[in-house]
């Protein structure tokens, strides 16, 4: 009988105040086991101090075919970058 455990995506926050980062996946019957397994698999060498487990089926992802239209608007808005503005040197660091 195939009774495969669902797939979970694992996110870990390291020691230094960074955001949780995706580190990989695993199978587990429920959230509690997912976190226990993630502890065993993904934090064997002090990789983190906090674990998030999200069932993979609940993750919505952008599709690669829409890459063009999705990100195009940001290409034309160069003024969003600080380097767009020339500030005279006399003003000092800004």
């Amino acid at each position: 009988m195939s009774n495969e455990w669902p797939l979970w995506e694992i996110f870990i926050r390291g020691q230094h105040g960074m955001s949780h980062r995706h580190v990989g996946s695993l199978h587990a019957p429920d959230a509690e086991m997912a976190i226990k397994n993630a502890r065993d698999v993904y934090t064997r060498r002090n990789e983190g101090v906090s674990i998030w487990a999200v069932e993979a089926a609940h993750i919505a992802a952008s599709s690669p075919e829409e890459k063009g239209p999705l990100y195009e608007p940001s290409n034309t808005k160069v003024y969003r970058h600080p380097t767009f503005f020339d500030i005279p040197e006399e003003v000092g660091h800004m």
Partner: peptide
């Protein structure tokens, strides 16, 4: 197998 199935059954029940 009984461990895999047992844990899955428990998770579904919960």
């Amino acid at each position: 197998e009984w461990v895999r199935d047992g844990l899955m059954a428990h998770a579904k029940k919960k």
